[in-house]
Design a protein around this nucleic acid. Structure first.
Length: 219
DNA sequence: ATCCCGAGGG
DNA sequence: CCCTCTGGAT
């Protein structure tokens, strides 16, 4: 897909899913430490579930130092409702310990350093950088971004790294932070994995997948 | 039943 | 590439 068509799709998605509006329901990323921990906890879960545990978690462990002193076993009950709590309790305690031991309690601001924390892959690191630090080094690619990008024709690949490279080349840097969010919204509401709602899709006329489907059944 | 703004390990 | 980890919402 060419850049003009991609940006047209971006504009329409932005109008359909207002990002500023949606951010109210997203996680509060004002504190980098909390942002890192909450983003780790967010994996394969809803932001509602994560928001439900944030107050108890951070009132008990307000700093990296406090969380570093805890044992995963005592943190686990506090985050039981988010799922994957056994693994995630270990991730966030070890993350806090590494934060204190290697970074003086300050959350680092590079992709490489962030990905050295347990539970932080490229997707999570991208989110922390772009939302907590306003640093755009790339585009966070999750399963929704992956599916929607492939269908629309933003990329031909299924490899997340190549998808990210294609998206980065396709969109201006100002759009990087929001395209992730827009594609996720669209992926959940309309461009679903099964039975996508083509009739509700605001970018159907730009969509390679939709074009192929119609071509396949009409001729 | 199915899915959720994934990452680590085999 | 595959599998596992998990509870909650719908």
């Amino acid at each position: 897909m060419n850049r003009e068509a991609a940006c047209e799709a971006y504009r329409r998605l932005l109008a359909e899913y207002p990002v500023v509006d949606d951010r109210r329901h997203f996680l509060d990323f004002s504190n980098p430490f909390e942002a890192l921990i909450l983003t780790i906890l967010s994996a394969q879960t809803t932001d509602r579930a994560v928001n439900a545990v944030r107050d108890t978690l951070f009132s008990r462990y307000p700093t990296p130092e406090a969380l570093a002193r805890a044992e995963p076993e005592e943190v686990e009950p506090l985050i039981r409702t988010i799922g994957f709590h056994h693994t995630k309790a270990r991730y966030i305690v070890e993350t806090a310990r590494k934060l204190v031991a290697d970074f003086g309690g300050e959350v680092p601001r590079t992709m490489e350093e962030l990905q050295s924390f347990p539970g932080v892959g490229r997707k999570t690191a991208n989110i922390v950088l772009s939302h907590a630090f306003e640093i755009n080094v790339g585009i966070a690619v999750d399963t929704h971004v992956r599916r929607v990008s492939k269908r629309l024709g933003f990329t031909d690949s299924t490899n997340p790294n190549i998808i990210e490279r294609d998206l980065v080349a396709l969109f201006p840097e100002e759009a990087w932070r929001d395209i992730n969010y827009l594609l996720i919204r669209h992926g959940r509401a309309v461009c679903t994995a099964q039975n996508p709602k083509h009739e509700q899709c605001i970018v159907a006329d730009l969509c390679r997948y939709y074009r192929e489907l119609r071509g396949g059944e009409e001729k």
